[in-house]
Write a protein that binds this DNA or RNA. Structure first.
Lengths: 229, 229
DNA sequence: GGACTAGTGTAGCGAACGCTATATAAAAAC
DNA sequence: GTTTTTATATAGCGTTCGCTACACTAGTCC
């Protein structure tokens, strides 16, 4: 034991609860009272452990990144860029609609635009999103070296495109899109990573989504109008 | 003149200013003090004209939709789905990085997740986003009827995919992406709307972005790391 | 044991929040 | 003119915000 009275709460469990609140209500929408209630502690414990509300957010984001990196590591080790992207997007469709988490992505729902006194929160979230983009860019650069992607392809642009799709899926998910709807978006996004006919014998579905999901399309309009209402 | 003392401020100009504040700081980050200062009025005038902070947001969103519909009307009248999408995405890349507005999209930056007492703000924004998605779906249904899109294509899924891309571009823009970076995303997104070889003689660039933008790719990594910093 | 260090619970700080009571000013109605 | 109606400016309402002073407790160190 280090010194003084030992901490009575589990830091990581508390951070998981804080993460959930930030995710669900955004940084500015999450109040200290709500956070401490969810974490099962009192304000002084929060401030002695994390310094400030923003410090708590950063600690929660670190934990978020930690979990995400574990997933990303597996995905990035897929043999081809196409498989990396396909698995990444389909897994994100699952994660962003997983009932264990709030819908969408913490790095997007946390707050894209904040008020006075929280100006660097959007910046902080953007930095975390950029990390994933950088990982993808590096993976695509490797794919070019391996002749997996054509030499004229722009790894940075492809990574940025994926970054946009991922964020967009997060927005859709946070407004109630279903898992299958997100999977359709994922499969359509994949089009940009398909080798064109003549280069390789492989040909995938082009404009429509996969057959497996086609049956779902009947009620999508109804679901869309629910989101609209 | 109707009755009583006439209003001294221009409602639409005031709404434009309010829109700017909501756009820049989000719903929860925008304070009444900041809004009234930007609108050049005092709180009682705001509340007599718009009822509440949320009422002001809705009025600002109505004005936003009004401007957006004017743009959408022209775009949707392009002859083919491909041209609709191309013009839409490229124009959005311009709009979301136009110095006359805050970066990104009000319907995304306004608030994806809000705290207690503002629960229906994210819902309201989602409904406005869904409207654009519905317009696109209807346009793609028409394109199918005109044999402009293949009969097996899923208009709703394509519209949802675009909705994701648009939102994603908004996220990127709000974290400082440049106009050219967004244009690259737009062109890559367009891949999902290209007829495949064998169907039509036309062939566009496949994986890399257009040649016109290729020259920009050299400093994109640097710009990305600025976003990261 | 006593000194020291650090976490916990209560209770509440000052500031900012969304919003409004009140008095006054500017127009139409008569 | 007087009355009626609505907008404006000042000033401040009650509440909630992020955060902390304080007293106390649970440990290590000697």
């Amino acid at each position: 034991m280090t010194l003084g009275r030992p901490r009575e709460f589990d830091t990581q469990k508390a951070l998981d609860e804080a993460m959930d609140i930030f995710w669900r209500h955004g940084y500015e929408g999450a109040t200290i009272a709500e956070l401490t209630a969810a974490m099962g502690i009192n304000p002084p414990s929060l401030y002695s452990a994390f310094g400030s509300k923003e410090g708590l957010l950063k600690a929660a984001l670190d934990r978020y990144a930690q979990k995400r990196d574990a997933v990303m590591h597996d995905i990035l080790s897929e043999p081809t860029a196409h498989e990396v992207v396909k698995r990444l997007l389909l897994q994100l469709a699952d994660l962003q609609t997983d009932a264990k988490n709030p819908p969408g992505c913490l790095l997007v729902a946390g707050g894209l635009a904040c008020g006075a006194g929280a100006e660097n929160v959007p910046f902080e979230l953007a930095a975390r999103r950029a990390r994933t983009e950088d990982q993808l860019r590096d993976r695509f650069l490797r794919a070019k070296e391996e002749d997996d992607l054509p030499p004229h392809s722009d790894a940075a642009a492809l990574a940025r495109y994926l970054s946009a799709v991922i964020a967009g899926m997060g927005v859709l998910a946070s407004s109630g899109a279903s898992r299958d709807e997100l999977r359709e978006v994922a499969l359509l996004s994949l089009t940009a990573f398909e080798r064109k006919a003549g280069k390789t014998p492989k040909r995938k579905t082009s404009i429509s989504s996969s057959k497996a999901l086609a049956a779902e399309s009947g009620n999508l309009i109804a679901q869309t109008s629910v989101r609209t209402g």
